[in-house]
Amino acid sequence: MDSDPTPSEQKAASTSLGDLLGEVTQDLSVLIRQEIALAKAELKESATKAGTGAGMIGGAGYAALMAVFFLSVALWWALGQLVGLGWSAVIVALIWAAVAAVLFFTGRNQIKEVKGAPRTVETLGKIPDALKRNEENR
């Protein structure tokens, strides 16, 4: 049962290996460029969404700040009815100083625990040694 060669088989039979490799290289180059363009488009879309989300979180942070401010004023005023406005302002300020101290020390301790990217640093440090071994083996 003899079958006729496919167009691909005919082209392969009549084209030199160098020309075929050139076509494969060109097709691979086009594919890589298309993948890079797709990645850029996806990253741009992701960055836009991330920027919008960050803006909304920033707005929420400002709203929370305003809420805390007005609650602090209300607490100052309410305590002022009991101990006088001067002392109530001191009490509210001390409460916020304590909150700030707790947040500061907690944040500082967490920053001390940051180790960066130790595995990446380790593997990047091995690259020069691997290159030296390859150069010695040539």
Rank of each mutant, 00 (worst) to 15 (best):
G22A: 11
T15K: 00
A47L: 09
V30L: 06
G86S: 10
A117K: 02
A130R: 10
M66F: 15
K11P: 00
S14V: 08
L71C: 01
K112F: 12
D19L: 09
L75D: 00
K40G: 07
S46P: 04
A50I: 07
G58D: 02
A39M: 14
T123P: 00
S8T: 12
L124R: 10
T6A: 07
A74D: 01
G107F: 08
R138N: 06
E136H: 10
A89K: 01
G55S: 10
A41H: 10
A89W: 00
G80S: 03
L65I: 04
L71S: 05
S8V: 12
N134I: 07
G53S: 09
S46T: 14
V73T: 04
R138Y: 13
M56Q: 15
W77R: 14
I127H: 05
A89G: 09
N109Y: 15
D129F: 15
V102W: 10
R33P: 00
S46W: 12
L85V: 07
R108E: 14
L38S: 13
K132P: 00
I57L: 13
P5M: 07
K112T: 02
V114P: 00
D19P: 00
G55T: 07
G58L: 05
A97Y: 13
K40I: 08
G18M: 13
W77H: 15
I32G: 01
Q81W: 12
G125T: 11
V24Q: 04
Q81G: 14
G18W: 06
G86F: 06
A93Y: 10
N134K: 05
D129C: 01
Q10N: 08
F104T: 15
D2R: 03
G107D: 01
I32C: 01
G107C: 03
L103G: 11
A97N: 08
K112Q: 06
I127M: 14
G125K: 10
A67N: 09
V102K: 01
T123L: 11
L79Y: 11
G125M: 06
G55A: 13
A12S: 13
P128V: 04
F105L: 13
S72H: 04
I57S: 09
W87C: 05
W76Y: 12
Q34F: 09
G84L: 07
T25V: 08
M1I: 03
T6E: 06
L103S: 13
L43E: 11
